[in-house]
Design a protein around this nucleic acid. Structure first.
Lengths: 341, 341
DNA sequence: TAGGTTAGCTAAACCGGTTCAGGCGGTGTC
DNA sequence: GACACCGCCTGAACCGGTTTAGCTAACCTA
C-alpha cells in the first residue's frame, strides 16, 4: 500500500507545472487550459493525491464542517427522536460533499452560548443550524455578531438575517382539533410544550384558534417542558379534576405516550373515555395500545433541506427561505366518539 | 470590540521574543524562564490572543476532535436514547478541553466503512469511539490499518489493540431472570436483540445461563434487531402461540414498551397474566402503565469514561481498560406472581 | 583556566495548501 | 507595425502555528 504522503508539490512536479496551477485545476477555476488540467488530474490520480483538509482549512479559512448545538437535558433529549432523524437528514447531504458535522450537546443556556462562541472562535465550522427556536432568540444576535452563517428551523418571531427552513405544524394541530370536534368532543384540553419555544407556543395558539373555529369553548391548557415526566404530570392533573376533558391534544408524542400511561393507571379507558392525539409520529406511537393518532413529522426531510440551505448560504452568500409540506394528521386508534356519562 | 486578528507574531513582538518561544510558553514546555513565560502570557492576554486551531492542526498534525460513527437506521436510532446520553457524557469531558465531537450517522455497513476511511483520510479526528460492537468486528482491523486510535464500548470477542470501556450487563439479565423465577415464573421467554451485536448475543447467553441457574427449562428466545417494531412482532408471536410464556425478558426497553402494547391489544393483563422486564431504563419505562421493571443503564457515565480513556490513549499512546459498575435491576410494576389458570 | 554542559533563546524551515502579482507569447485593432 | 489585450502559467507570499538546528552566555568541573 502506498502509505507515503503525497502533497500538491509532488503532483505539480509530476505534471510539470507549478503547485499554484494544480490548486487551480483542482478547484476548477479558469486560467487552466483543458489539456493541462487533464494532465494535472491524471498526475493526481496516478499518485493517489488527496488534498490535505488541514492545509486547505488554514489557507482558505474554511473548516468544511457544519455545527449543531443541542441544548436539552439529556434525559429529555433521549425520548425525542427528532435529533437523530434530523441529523441523519443533514448527513445525507454532507457526506456527498465531504463535509462533517460537529455536534455539541449542552444542558444549560449558558453552556449553549459558550458553545457557539467556541465554535466561532476556533473556526470549527462554516455555519450552524439553529433548532428549538425561542422567543426573541438571543442566539440570532449572537451568531450575527460572531459572523457565523446559520439557518433557522422555522421562522423566528423577530428580525433575522438568516434563511428559515420551515415546516408549518399548525395545520396538524388544527386538523387534530377539528377531528376531535367532529367526533363530538367538546371538552378538549391541550398539554402544551415549552412556552419559551416557538413551536411550543405556536402549537398552543393553533390549538386555541382551532377551538374557536370549531365553535367550542376555550379548552384547558397546561404548559410543560415537552418532557415525558411533565406530560405525565399534566395528564394526571387534567384527569383527576372535577370535570375532566374528554379529549387531550398533546404537544408531542412522548407526552401523549406518558398521558396514555396515566390514563391506564387511573382506569380511564382510551379511547372510550378519553381520546388523545400526539404530535411527531415517533416510532413508539404506532406500537403503544391503542396506537396513537398523531401528526406526522418529517425530520429527515427537514435536515436535508436545512443542510442544502445552509450550504447555499455559505457558498453563495445568500439563500432563500424554504417551506416544506405541512405536517398532517395520521388517524390511528387513540381517539373515538366520546362516551356521555 | 477588538475584531482584528491577533496572531502569535503579534504576541511575540509585544513580549519582545521570537514566535517560537511564544509557542513554547503556550504549550508549557521546558526551555522558557519563568519570567519570560510570564511576560509572554501577559502579552497574550493583553492582546486577547487565541491561537488558531486551524494553524495548530496543520503544523501539529492533530485535529483536536474525536469521532463517533453511528450505524443505525434513523428510525431505530430515534427510539433508543442511548446515543444522546452517551454523547452528552462524552461532551462533558470534551468541552472542558476545547475538543469537538464529529458525528457521522450512516445507515449501511458500507457507508460506515467509508465514513471511517473519510475521517482518517481527512485527518478529521484524532480518535474514534467504537460502539455497537459486533462479532469479529471488521472495524477493529480497519481502524488498526487506518492508524486511528479508538476505544471500544465493551470488550470485543476477538483480539483488539484498543482499550475497552465496559459495563457488564449480564448481572442485570441474571437478576431479572432470578427475580421472575423467584416470583414463581417457570415459562420465561426472551426477546433478544440483534445476535450480530455483542450486547445482543451476550444478553441472550446471560438469559440462558440464568435459566439454567434457576433450574428452569430452557426458555423460548426470539431474535430481533432491537427495534420497536421487531419487539412488537416478537411479542405477538409469543403470546398467540398455544402455551404462551408467563413472563418475557426483553433485550431492551423500547421492545418491552412495544411488547406491553401488544399485550394490551391482545387483552393480556400485565403484570397479572404476563410479567415483563426491560433493559436500559429509558425515560418512557417509568411512565408507561404498569411502569417497567428494567435494568438501569448509565450511558452518560459510559460516555464520560470512554472519552477519558480515548484521550489518554491519544495523549499517552496507551490506556487501560475500564470496568464500570454493572447494570442492576430496577423493580417497578410490570412483573408479579404468575396467575395459574 | 581551559573545556564541556546547560538553560534560554532566535532564526528559519516546515506543515500543505491558496492566492495574487506579474511574465510571456499570441491574437486583434487601428 | 505598434499597442493593447487576453489566456495560460510561474514564483512567491501567505495562512498561523510547531519544531529543530544552532547560537550565546553562564555555570560546572578538573
Amino acid at each position: 500500500m502506498n502509505t507515503v504522503k503525497v502533497t500538491i508539490s509532488d503532483v505539480a512536479k509530476r505534471a510539470g507545472v507549478s503547485k499554484g496551477l494544480v490548486s487551480f485545476a483542482l478547484n476548477d477555476r479558469p486560467g487552466v487550459s483543458a489539456g493541462t488540467r487533464q494532465r494535472i488530474l491524471n498526475a493526481a490520480t496516478e499518485l493517489g493525491w488527496k488534498p490535505s483538509l488541514r492545509a486547505r482549512s488554514l489557507s482558505s479559512q474554511r473548516s468544511f464542517a457544519l455545527g449543531l448545538v443541542v441544548a436539552r437535558d439529556p434525559q429529555v433529549l433521549g425520548s425525542d427522536p427528532f435529533f437523530p432523524s434530523f441529523i441523519a437528514g443533514v448527513e445525507s447531504i454532507l457526506s456527498t460533499r465531504g463535509l462533517a458535522l460537529v455536534l455539541s450537546v449542552v444542558s444549560t443556556a449558558d453552556a449553549e452560548i459558550k458553545s457557539y462562541q467556541q465554535l466561532a472562535e476556533d473556526g470549527r465550522v462554516d455555519g450552524v443550524f439553529l433548532t428549538d427556536l425561542r422567543h426573541d432568540d438571543p442566539r440570532i444576535p449572537l451568531l450575527t455578531e460572531l459572523g457565523l452563517p446559520a439557518v433557522t428551523l422555522g421562522r423566528p418571531d423577530g428580525p433575522s438575517p438568516f434563511p428559515a427552513v420551515t415546516i408549518d405544524d399548525t395545520p396538524g394541530i388544527r386538523e387534530s382539533v377539528a377531528y376531535l370536534a367532529g367526533l363530538g368532543h367538546r371538552r378538549i384540553a391541550h398539554v402544551a410544550g415549552n412556552p419559551a419555544m416557538l413551536h411550543g407556543s405556536r402549537r398552543r395558539e393553533a390549538f386555541e384558534d382551532a377551538m374557536r373555529a370549531a365553535g367550542l369553548p376555550a379548552g384547558q391548557t397546561i404548559e410543560t417542558d415537552f418532557s415525558v415526566g411533565a406530560g405525565s404530570e399534566a395528564t394526571r392533573q387534567l384527569l383527576t379534576q372535577d370535570r375532566p376533558p374528554s379529549a387531550i391534544v398533546y404537544g408531542n408524542d412522548p407526552m401523549a405516550v406518558a398521558g396514555l400511561g396515566v390514563a391506564q393507571e387511573l382506569g380511564v379507558r382510551v379511547p372510550d373515555e378519553l381520546s388523545i392525539t400526539g404530535f411527531d409520529d415517533i416510532d413508539f406511537s404506532r406500537y403503544v395500545y391503542p396506537p396513537l393518532t398523531t401528526v406526522s413529522a418529517t425530520p429527515v426531510v427537514w435536515g436535508r433541506a436545512a443542510a442544502v440551505a445552509l450550504l447555499a448560504l455559505i457558498d453563495d452568500g445568500a439563500a432563500d427561505d424554504v417551506d416544506l409540506p405541512a405536517a398532517r394528521l395520521i388517524i390511528r386508534g387513540s381517539a373515538a366518539t366520546p362516551a356521555h356519562p
